[in-house]
């Protein structure tokens, strides 16, 4: 109860006491723009409209009892720090924004084919510096200014397994986290244990990592959620509300999975999220409320025998412990 009281979390409006976070939606997107889509001739980037839609969704989340939304899409997928500041101010929802890049196909040529001879892709230490400075010096508004510190480093591996550049991104993210004290979010590509190990090899404690995508059908079949928890990392069951995907388990199975993890003593390692997208540009909308976990899935957990204190642990304490800067 008091372990995190002196700790703070980096939000877009500055550090806040970790105990003030309340219910956290941990793996979400606010404005999500496929890199380049902002230049598309047929995509509108009307800021007032984007703000209005996001503000409405954040207000609904708050009305349902939510207090904090984490935009875990990194620094190059539509992140708009000044927009998020205004949204947080106007809705009262804490917004934690992320630094980080990935997977490789989402990077720009600056990182992959730089103007050097030969065009060697960026190594881990350069990514570590880029991400680390977004924490120590602030998140960038490209070519204009730096704002507040990033609250986490988010990266993602290529489906099918990390490319060499993905591996550099993972190692760079881990080094930045070790240096600055923020956590890392990874979305695994093929093998969450091996990909988690990349971060641990850099000296990052396992409890500073959240591994996403663990409600994929293959992940559950392989027993990876429990295995990740046993390594000491956080397990993100992060497609709650998605019941029409051949690649993911359904909510009833998610509830069973959570109950099993809790029964195995992993309640303090479970995180729940919907991968909701506030506004999507360049890819399909995904109209899941940020409060879906809180309003629809938490009651399901109760009916699957998960105790209220474990639900609170998962929705409040775990994200607080993860996000608190060390």
């Amino acid at each position: 109860m008091t372990t995190a009281t002196s700790r703070t979390v980096n939000t877009v409006l500055g550090p806040v006491p970790a105990d003030d976070l309340g219910v956290v939606a941990i793996h979400e997107a606010l404005l999500s723009v496929v890199p380049g889509a902002e230049h598309a001739y047929d995509i509108s980037m009307d800021r007032a409209e984007i703000f209005e839609v996001l503000a409405g969704k954040l207000a609904a989340f708050r009305a349902a009892g939510g207090r904090t939304v984490v935009d875990s899409t990194g620094m190059f997928h539509g992140r708009d720090v000044k927009l998020y500041e205004a949204l947080s101010r106007s809705t009262g929802v804490h917004v934690v924004a992320s630094t980080g890049l990935g997977p490789e196909e989402d990077l720009g040529g600056y990182f992959l084919t730089p103007q050097t001879d030969p065009p060697t892709p960026w190594p881990a230490e350069k990514f570590a510096d880029l991400f680390g400075r977004e924490v120590t010096e602030g998140m960038v508004v490209p070519r204009v200014e730096r704002r507040r510190a990033a609250g986490l480093v988010a990266t993602c591996a290529t489906r099918g397994g990390p490319t060499p550049t993905d591996e550099s991104l993972f190692r760079g993210a881990a080094r930045a986290a070790v240096a600055t004290g923020v956590p890392v979010s990874i979305r695994y590509g093929a093998d969450p244990l091996a990909e988690l190990q990349l971060l641990l090899d850099e000296g990052l404690p396992a409890d500073r990592v959240v591994v996403g995508n663990l409600d994929r059908t293959e992940a559950v079949a392989a027993g990876w959620p429990a295995a990740v928890a046993e390594r000491g990392a956080y397990v993100a069951i992060d497609h709650v509300g998605r019941n029409d995907s051949d690649h993911h388990i359904r909510d009833a199975e998610r509830a069973d999975l959570v109950a099993q993890l809790v029964a195995a003593g992993h309640a303090h390692r479970v995180l729940l999220s919907g991968n909701a997208i506030g506004v999507a540009k360049g890819h399909p909308d995904y109209e899941l409320p940020y409060a879906h976990v809180l309003t629809a899935f938490a009651p399901l957990l109760t009916s699957h025998g998960v105790a209220d204190e474990d639900v609170q642990q998962i929705l409040v304490a775990n994200p607080r412990d993860l996000l608190a800067v060390r």
Partner: peptide
Amino acid sequence: YGMPGSELDTQWW
């Protein structure tokens, strides 16, 4: 001219 992504690197700003 700057390659895409260079706008994130303050060394060139």
